[in-house]
Design a binder for these strands. Structure first.
Lengths: 124, 124
DNA sequence: TATACAATGATACAAAGATACAATTGTACA
DNA sequence: TGTACAATTGTATCTTTGTATCATTGTATA
């Protein structure tokens, strides 16, 4: 059971307090990879806060690669991120991903140009 | 044996991932007209997903004229996917592939431009 | 004081899950 | 053989959960 303690008089935004405390509980072992966090609404009710505030905190942790939030399912602590890899390896990985993408597009019957355009038009 | 691979961390809805991958396996010959697909419950269990999510994916493919789902019987790949609608689904599948590529590149720490360039430099 | 910005709240939406239902198939038994 | 019934399979609908967008509030600063 996640137990957070917000200070409503603090200068620190509630969102940040939530982020920090979850990180802390992850650091001290109270939260472990794979654990499911409370829903945004449940935690918000408990903390007497708007559920969007919890959602924002979850979003920050998600973008930091610490948790995974999934619409309709819930949010979960991720496995620990792998140690940083070299720039060269990353380059290679990207190249392999790009090749795979092109090949898959080709299998679907698209031309190289169509595949390129599809990426260009995808928003990030 | 249908083998799909869902990315639960992706921004791409699970339903769309399923649609795209079945489309892809049809394109590369892993699935052939007349084949029976797993039941919604069986596939859902394997993918660790609610069976309605699979049912929704099947419905999309059904409406596109690619498969035939029959209550109490099962779902089957149709003999001849009607070109006009199927083209639209294929377009969508390409878009999903492109999105996945961008997202994976992002997770590696690359910018959108770097990802684009990597595709452009990949040979066919 | 006025204005701009950041934080939070309110509301509507989208994706996925839960549950109950309907159609078909298979099987047991008279 | 035919009927009853259980099991299997997809469908309908509502609930749950996170997301997007706009409004409100408070505070810093010109």
């Amino acid at each position: 059971m996640l137990k957070l303690n917000l200070n409503f008089r603090s200068d620190i935004p509630l969102t940040n307090q939530i982020v920090a405390q979850i990180q802390q509980q992850l650091a001290n072992g109270a939260l472990k990879p794979g654990d499911q966090l409370p829903t945004v609404r449940a935690l918000a009710t408990e903390l007497r806060v708007n559920f969007n505030t919890v959602a924002r905190a979850y979003r920050i942790l998600d973008e930091a690669g610490i948790i995974s939030t999934q619409q309709g399912r819930g949010t979960f602590i991720l496995e620990q991120p792998p140690p940083p890899i070299s720039a060269q390896i990353k380059r290679q990985s990207l190249s392999i991903l790009a090749q795979r993408y092109l090949q898959e597009a080709k299998q679907l019957g698209f031309t190289r140009e169509q595949a390129l355009e599809a990426v260009a038009q995808s928003d990030w």
